[in-house]
Amino acid sequence: MPIFKRNYCFLNYLIMLISFCIPLVSCTTKKEQTQEPIIMMRHDFVIRATDYPVQKAFLEYPVYRGPQNKNILERINYHIGPESVLGRTVDELTKDFQDGLVPFIKARGEIVYFTRSFLQVQWTIDTMGAYQNTSTSMVLVELENGIPHGPESMFEDDLAMARFVSDRIIPSVEKQLKAVYQQHPEVEPVLTELGIPLPYGPDDLFNLHVADNGIYFIYTFKFPHSYASVQPEPVSVFIPWVELKPFTYEGSILWRIYQN
């Protein structure tokens, strides 16, 4: 083969290779850039109380540092941070621990959904009184204006949505509960008398996790503290956007998330 023809073929191959690689590099760069506005803050506290099995507590949460103006950034970080979720600033929590109080053992905010328009953080808080207890809460914030959103801005009829989710999630809840009663039959009469499992209702819609193609709805058992040691892990059920669409409305937060 003549030299110029071999060079021509090689040049074509090189152009094809470069054309293929450029999109890959761009995607990787964009993905890394979406993580840059988020930093994690951690604070450790000494537990002065002598009747606790641990000597330290910690607080960990994300801080958003995006392109928005100062007021909006403050609003976003207020809603996803400890002041809104725990009702205390870091300075106030520090003083609480110094005074011998133990508001929590672990409190952690974790990002579960992050796009250009929305940020959702799941908080998990471990406390200890007579019994150890774990609670979770979700915060979904619109990044354009720093406004938090709950079910009221997602679904047209919260009661209808809750009934739909209940039909999907309660069978798994009952299965989990049955396993508990098999291992601990002594707790069944008391928990049954207390109405466990509690029905899934509109208030439970606040405990949801937005995903790319739908929503994870989460059921927490809410056992009395004295039975927390046998309480099962929360149950979740995924419902895709196509099934959620009839329960939302045009212009709602969910509509905007999944239409983009």
Rank of each mutant, 00 (worst) to 15 (best):
M1H: 05
F4K: 14
K5M: 09
L11F: 14
N12R: 13
Y13T: 13
Y13H: 10
L14A: 15
I18S: 09
F20E: 14
I22L: 14
T28W: 10
T28M: 10
K30W: 10
T34A: 07
T34D: 05
E36M: 12
I39N: 08
M40Q: 12
M40N: 13
M41G: 04
M41L: 11
R42W: 02
R42Y: 02
R42C: 05
H43G: 03
F45I: 09
V46E: 14
T50N: 11
Y52S: 07
V54F: 08
Q55R: 14
K56A: 08
K56G: 01
A57K: 08
F58S: 10
F58V: 09
L59Q: 03
E60A: 14
P62S: 04
Y64Q: 05
P67H: 14
P67A: 12
N69K: 08
K70N: 10
N71M: 11
I72T: 15
L73A: 05
N77R: 12
Y78W: 12
I80M: 12
I80C: 05
P82T: 07
E83G: 03
S84G: 00
S84D: 15
G87T: 07
R88C: 07
D91R: 13
L93P: 01
T94D: 15
K95D: 13
D99W: 03
D99L: 11
G100I: 05
G100R: 08
L101K: 14
V102M: 02
F104T: 06
F104V: 10
F104K: 04
F104Y: 09
I105A: 02
E110R: 11
E110Y: 06
Y113W: 07
R116D: 15
L119K: 01
Q122H: 07
W123M: 08
T124F: 00
T127N: 05
M128P: 04
A130N: 14
N133L: 14
N133P: 00
V139R: 11
V139T: 14
L140R: 04
E142L: 00
E142W: 00
L143C: 05
E144L: 13
G146H: 02
G146K: 01
G146P: 12
P148K: 03
H149I: 08
P151K: 08
S153Y: 09
D157R: 07
D157N: 15
D157T: 12
D158F: 08
L159N: 13
M161A: 07
M161Q: 06
F164S: 01
S166P: 06
D167A: 06
I169T: 04
I170K: 02
S172R: 11
S172A: 09
E174G: 00
Q176R: 12
K178C: 02
K178G: 03
V180R: 06
V180S: 03
Q182E: 13
P185T: 11
P185Y: 11
E186F: 08
V187F: 06
E188K: 13
P189C: 10
V190F: 11
L194W: 03
I196N: 01
P197D: 04
G201V: 07
G201S: 08
D203H: 11
N207F: 06
V210W: 04
A211I: 01
A211E: 15
D212W: 10
D212S: 12
F221K: 05
Y227P: 13
A228R: 07
E233I: 02
E233Y: 05
V237K: 01
F238V: 05
P240I: 06
P240Y: 01
W241M: 04
W241A: 03
L244P: 02
L244H: 03
K245I: 04
P246W: 05
F247T: 01
W255G: 00
R256L: 03
